[in-house]
Design a binder for these strands. Structure first.
Lengths: 349, 349
DNA sequence: AGGATTTGTGTAAGCGTTTTCATGTGCTAC
DNA sequence: GTAGCACATGAAAACGCTTACACAAATCCT
């Protein structure tokens, strides 16, 4: 209705700070102050200005503002090629907290675009800071990230003495609990690890926990107890088929590096009449929604996804607003969630 | 190393178009032309300027640029509270195409923030256009959306004579195929619909297709053949339990409005020893990854998620770049994917 | 060959803000 | 009374870029 009211100012149709100033009978400086430092403006003037702002439906031009302040209240988010529940949960968590704190999210899943170089993609220069999630150890370019002209927070990768803020998940805690649970009924030589390819940070850490637990029981893991390829249902299935063909998928325990692998294995086992958890005990990882959807319900290790998201936003905002504070390094715990697929003493959820 | 080279220009440390101009011995206008309209610049000058740009690692300030051009190459995306595979697939599709076309995504899942009003959230003024996805018929505020000062594209809602560009899924095509498939072995009076609450656009459309198919067979759907609550595993489960208690979950067919509901029903059935697809035939909707993970594999109707994403980006960019073109209205087909849970003649996937 | 055109470049006027500095007003304090 | 001060406001200078306009040099036409 009163949209795009022609400003007395003439020229451009858009309503600018100038139109507001004229309507309120003050200078543009005062309008600006009402918006940014109201305490510097008398009550009566402020009211008049606010009225004008409302009448005109004035909204400050963010480009002009950004030009001066070098701030956009936009956070760049670069996620790896992860799918499903994890992705959406993380995004919601990021978005949640960002909104709460008055920031916005500029996302690019195509992580490669973090690279700089004029002309190219990531509107790197629009954002106030960058959240980068990593899953692979290789091609990390942590150096590059920490030398960006913007503050950055890295999710998923940590290393002593890193200059950027980091947030990692402590795969070890939950994994150990899970494996010990398996070891309560299976001997170490009958426990298996099925994960993603070497180089995947999480898979590797989970494997480390696996090996450590076995060694603690005095058993050096044999190479055939460890299988690695990818985080997929098919890989789990295929591995299980192989094991079954060799008659080795019985009376063992499997620690899968994620839920999809675990379910692949479980499905193959069931199709071949192997009882879970009777003959085959399985634990997955991620505690995705899948766990309660499949039968038997899958024991798993919970990732604190929401917490990661919240922490990442808080971290990046801290770095944006207090660039000189020392970068922190957070480590969030994982927790074992026992369900049906691993049998054992107390059963829940 | 050569980061933040002090510009001969003095003042600010950052490298601006001015530093480049000085280094290349040209005016800033020429630098700008090299970047934006190279054909207006002689080859030799252009080379010199490009060299300077490279040396200085110059990157144009997007705020200044936006201030003039009123363009940011950023697209706002507002998604409803959807989770899981669908969300991530859609985001990837959007991101993919957006990147390809040189745009970026500013997302806000908290859709409410589309509302305008000064001071508040959505960096509405930074974006060149807006993609809004809707799932509920109520509170649509389509008017509001079409009156925004930016071009907009609506996903999921269409209505004759709408001023905004729209992209919807044709629930009907796939749904009809699915129901006809069920009707090939079950009589219309033994077919059930389990969906989300009235008002959810997709659930309602799927229900319509369900009713239409039954009527075409000369059967007016009884109210007990239709159950609605929400898109959740638990709802499916609960509904199935109720049916089982009344001894009515046998020798029937169920068309669930999404996969989660379907799986809830299937799990409840299996726990109670009802054979699928022997005694109970089920079809879900969405063709999510879940379908192949559960046993029996779930027949479903595929949503063209990638296509939606791509179409949305292309649409919004068209509206941004040719604001005067007539808004289009796309309707993307859904397709029935037969698996195990619905039995029937040919079995695949 | 001389004017008309084209081509390449520079000058300068903004774009809509924030912010420094100067100015003016009305106080308090001597 | 007037020096001193706090407070509210305005004028104007940036911020880094695009682009209309002006102008010189090179190119074209008859």
């Amino acid at each position: 209705m009163k949209r795009q009211e022609a400003s007395e100012n003439g020229r451009t149709g858009a309503v600018s700070i100038r139109s507001v100033a004229e309507r309120a009978g003050v200078s543009i400086a005062t309008v600006s102050r009402v918006l940014n430092t109201p305490q510097k403006v008398s009550q009566s003037t402020a009211d008049r200005v606010r009225k004008a702002i409302e009448d005109l439906e004035y909204r400050p031009n963010l480009f002009a503002k950004g030009l001066l302040t070098k701030r956009s209240r936009v956070i760049g988010v670069s996620l790896p090629d992860i799918h499903g529940e994890f992705y959406s949960e993380l995004m919601f968590a990021l978005d949640d907290r960002a909104c709460e704190l008055g920031y916005h999210l500029l996302v690019s899943s195509n992580a490669h675009r973090v690279e700089r170089g004029p002309g190219n993609g990531f509107a790197l220069d629009l954002v106030d800071g960058l959240i980068v999630m990593l899953t692979e150890r290789s091609g990390v370019d942590i150096e590059g990230i920490s030398q960006l002209s913007h503050p950055a927070v890295v999710i998923g990768f940590d290393e002593p003495g890193l200059e950027v803020e980091t947030i990692v998940v402590d795969n070890e805690t939950g994994a150990r609990k899970a494996i010990e649970h398996l070891l309560s009924e299976n001997t170490p030589d009958r426990c298996y690890f099925v994960g993603a390819h070497r180089g995947n940070i999480d898979s590797d850490e989970r494997l480390n926990a696996f090996c450590a637990a076995l060694r603690k029981r005095g058993h050096e893991p044999r190479s055939d107890q460890i299988a690695r390829r990818e985080f997929s249902f098919d890989w789990g299935w295929e591995w299980a088929e192989g094991m079954i063909d060799e008659g080795r998928l019985e009376d063992i325990a499997v620690f899968a590096a994620n839920d999809e692998i675990a379910i692949g294995i479980a499905n193959a086992a069931r199709d071949r009449g192997i009882e879970i958890p009777g003959s085959l005990r399985i634990v997955g990882f991620d505690d995705s929604r899948l766990c309660s959807l499949v039968r038997p319900k899958l024991s798993s290790v919970r990732m604190p996804v929401r917490e990661i998201g919240h922490a990442a936003i808080e971290a990046i905002i801290r770095r944006i607003e207090e660039p000189d504070s020392a970068p922190r390094h957070a480590r969030l715990a994982t927790t074992f969630v026992q369900r049906e697929s691993s049998g054992g003493p107390r059963s829940m959820g």
